[in-house]
Simulated assay, not measured.
Amino acid sequence: MRLNRVLRMSAAVVAAGLALSACGGGGSDAGSGSGGAKNLVAKAKNDKKLTIGIKFDQPGLGQKQADGTYAGFDVDVAKYIAKELGVEESAISWKEAQSAQREDLIKKGEVDFIVATYSITDKRKNEVSFAGPYFIAHQDLLVQAENTDITGPESLTGNKKLCSVKGSTPAQNVKDKYAKEVQLQEVGKYTDCVTSLLNKTVDAMTTDDVILAGYAAQQPGKLKLVGKGFTDEKYGVGLKKDDTESVTAINNAIKKMQQDGAWKAALEKNVGPSGYKIPEPPAIS
C-alpha cells in the first residue's frame, strides 16, 4: 500500500514537471541565439551580444585584417549601432556576408543584422527589412591605370570583359542595361575581380565607387577609378523582415552618428586616404 502511494506521488510530480516545461515554466529562451528574440532590440537587451554580418574583403569598408581584427566604415557603423542597442564591441561576433548570401543569412537567423555595402532595393525589401540609408554610393568602373578606352558605361563596347560579383546590384544593372555590349563575368568576391583585372584577363570591374576607390588605393599606379558614377546605391542595414521596432532603433542610432560627428570621422579615417570625396550624410527614410 505504502509503495503504491509513493509511486503515485512520484508520477504526479513528474507529470507536473512535464506540464511546466511544456508551458515554458522552466524559463524563456527569448533572446537566445541569433534569431531567438522577438526582435533585435529585445535580443540585444537580453543577451548583451550580437552577430553582425560584414564584408571581409573590402578595404576601407569591411576588411578582415592580418591580425584577425576587422576595420572599415561599415564596421564602425555596425559598432556604433550595437553600442546604441546596449552591446559592447567585445560582445560582437563578426560573420562574413557575401553579396549572394545576405538575405539567407538574415532569414535563417545566422546574423542579427548586416552592414555590408547592402543596397536597398524593392526586390530585397520583399525578403528583409532595411534601416537607413546610412550612405549613398554610385556605381562606377575600375580599370587598369593605362586604360584610355573605358570612360564610362557607354564605352563598354566591342565585347569587353567586365567583372562583378554574383548577387550584387551592380552585376544586375549591367545585365539589365549593358548585357548586349559586354561579356559579364560574375565571381564570388570582389578581390577575385581585382586579381583578374591586375592579370588583364578582364578589361574592367564594376561596383560602387566607394568600394572601387579602396581597391585603387591598394594598387597605386596599377588601377584607377574611372570616376563617372551612373547609379545611386543607397546602403542600408539589413535585418529580419517586419522588425519595425528595430528599424526605428537603428535609424535613430544612424541619425545620432551623423549628428555627433562620428559618421564623418569614420569616413575620413577609413575612406579618406583613397582620395574619395566625403559626401554629406544622407537623409534617413
Score class of each variant (00 low, 15 high):
Arg8Thr: 14
Ser10Leu: 14
Ala12Phe: 07
Val14Thr: 12
Ala15Thr: 02
Ala16Trp: 04
Gly17Thr: 10
Gly26Trp: 03
Ala30Asp: 14
Ala30Thr: 06
Gly35Tyr: 00
Asn39Gly: 08
Ala42Met: 08
Asn46Cys: 00
Lys48Gln: 14
Leu50Trp: 06
Thr51Gly: 11
Thr51Asn: 08
Phe56His: 12
Gly60His: 03
Gly60Thr: 08
Lys64Glu: 09
Gln65Arg: 10
Tyr70Ile: 10
Phe73Leu: 09
Val75Phe: 08
Val77His: 02
Tyr80Val: 09
Ala82Met: 09
Lys83Pro: 11
Lys83Arg: 14
Glu84Leu: 09
Gly86Leu: 05
Gly86Gln: 06
Glu89Gly: 07
Glu89Pro: 05
Ser90Leu: 04
Glu96His: 02
Ala97Ser: 14
Gln101Lys: 12
Lys108Ser: 15
Val111Tyr: 01
Asp112Asn: 15
Asp112Gln: 08
Ile114Pro: 01
Thr117His: 00
Ser119Asn: 09
Arg124Glu: 00
Phe135Ala: 08
Phe135Asp: 11
Ala137Gly: 09
Ala137His: 00
Gln139Glu: 13
Asp140Arg: 02
Asp140Leu: 04
Leu142Tyr: 01
Leu142Met: 10
Ala145Asp: 09
Glu146Lys: 13
Thr151Leu: 10
Leu156Phe: 07
Lys160Phe: 01
Lys166His: 06
Ser168Trp: 08
Thr169Leu: 12
Gln172Arg: 12
Val174Tyr: 10
Asp176Leu: 11
Ala179Ile: 13
Val182Arg: 05
Val182Ser: 14
Gln183His: 07
Leu184Thr: 11
Leu184Asp: 12
Glu186Ala: 11
Gly188Thr: 14
Cys193Ser: 07
Val194Ala: 12
Val194Ile: 15
Thr195Phe: 01
Ser196Gly: 13
Leu197Ala: 12
Leu197Ile: 12
Lys200His: 15
Val202Asn: 01
Ala204Ile: 07
Asp208Ala: 13
Asp209Asn: 15
Leu223Ala: 07
Lys224His: 04
Lys224Met: 07
Val226Ile: 07
Gly227Thr: 06
Phe230Asp: 07
Lys234Trp: 04
Val237Leu: 06
Leu239Ala: 10
Lys240Pro: 03
Glu245Leu: 11
Ala249Ser: 09
Ile254Val: 10
Lys255Thr: 12
Gln259Gly: 03
Asp260Gly: 11
Gly261His: 06
Ala265Trp: 00
Ala266Ser: 15
Ser274Leu: 05
Tyr276Met: 04
Tyr276Phe: 15
Pro281Asn: 02
Pro281Tyr: 00
Pro282Cys: 11
Ala283Val: 08
Ile284Pro: 06
